[in-house]
Computed example of a mutant assay.
Amino acid sequence: MSELPIVILDAVAPTKQRCILNRRGSTVWEVEGDRGKFAVKLGYPIEATSEWAAQEWTALAPAREGAILYRLGASYITYGDWERGTWNIQPWHEGPDLYHVWATCRSEGSEIEPHEGVARSCAESLAALHAQGWAHGDVQPAHFIIGPEKTHLIDLALAHGGAVSEGRDFPYRGCLVHYEAPEISASVLATGEAEPSPEADIYGLGAALLISGTGWRAVEYPDDAPRAVQRQAVVDGKRREVSMPGKLGHLVDDMLSYNPADRPTIDEVVAALL
């Protein structure tokens, strides 16, 4: 996707536009116009190849996220259909993501420890979502934007917690396995689907903090392993012997507990970081 469709050009009348992400099934644009700066997401189906099966849900994801953001009371949200799928327009959030903020902590020989205030701001953004009765379903470092005043939790296309219109909805089939809780991986392996939960989000946040602060995944498997192999390693509990320094050490270990009931709630995570 090298150009924005007419429907977006009509809605935003951009003076500047830049494609910042182009992956199978979606593109994300940074767009500026007279009314401000926005993120524009376009979804379209993934066609089958010799390496992967066709996927239709990617075409629906932007509208599903737009509907969820609207239900959550976010401002300046609009979404709709275009010839290949759906789109949404939402406010642009300035700032680096969690993984980039802690880059110096991962540098060889670095003595800089991950800042607990950054971890707390990520937990607070997730707590705000949980307080409204929703689970994110796709917690990962790239989805925490560390802004100058607050941290924004983005990419809610896979969130669950309320009704989504049938024409926009699709089953949840897991997320990036690095941040997938064992119970989610087990369900996806067994049935092809799962149900996002606050407990699984806690695991995802723990895994996101761990890899951002140390450079290590929570679970050990070959980098090029198929997703089914990755998920089986998660189900088998193949945790790496790596931990965070300071106060985050025991907390992240608890967040990565195999049993969902043994993980702290998001409010307990926030309280532990005060």
Results as ranks from 00 to 15, higher is better:
3 E>M: 12
6 I>G: 00
8 I>K: 11
8 I>R: 15
14 P>W: 05
17 Q>W: 09
19 C>K: 12
20 I>K: 11
27 T>P: 04
31 V>W: 00
33 G>Q: 07
39 A>C: 10
47 E>N: 07
47 E>D: 01
57 W>H: 06
58 T>H: 11
59 A>W: 08
63 A>N: 08
64 R>G: 12
66 G>L: 09
68 I>R: 08
69 L>G: 03
71 R>A: 13
78 T>K: 13
78 T>S: 15
87 W>G: 12
87 W>D: 03
88 N>C: 11
91 P>F: 03
95 G>Q: 03
97 D>Y: 11
99 Y>I: 04
104 T>D: 14
108 E>S: 10
112 I>F: 09
118 V>R: 00
121 S>G: 08
122 C>H: 06
127 A>V: 06
133 G>A: 01
136 H>P: 04
136 H>K: 02
139 V>A: 10
140 Q>I: 00
141 P>M: 08
144 F>T: 00
148 P>H: 13
150 K>E: 15
150 K>H: 14
160 H>E: 14
161 G>P: 05
162 G>Q: 11
166 E>V: 09
166 E>S: 12
168 R>G: 02
168 R>W: 10
169 D>G: 05
169 D>R: 06
177 V>Y: 09
181 A>H: 07
184 I>N: 04
185 S>K: 02
187 S>F: 07
188 V>K: 00
190 A>H: 01
191 T>R: 12
191 T>E: 12
196 P>K: 04
198 P>K: 14
199 E>D: 11
199 E>I: 03
202 I>M: 13
215 G>P: 00
216 W>E: 10
223 D>I: 11
228 A>F: 14
237 G>W: 08
238 K>N: 05
242 V>K: 04
243 S>L: 11
247 K>F: 02
248 L>K: 01
253 D>R: 14
255 M>Y: 14
256 L>R: 03
257 S>C: 12
265 T>E: 15
267 D>A: 13
267 D>N: 13
271 A>P: 03
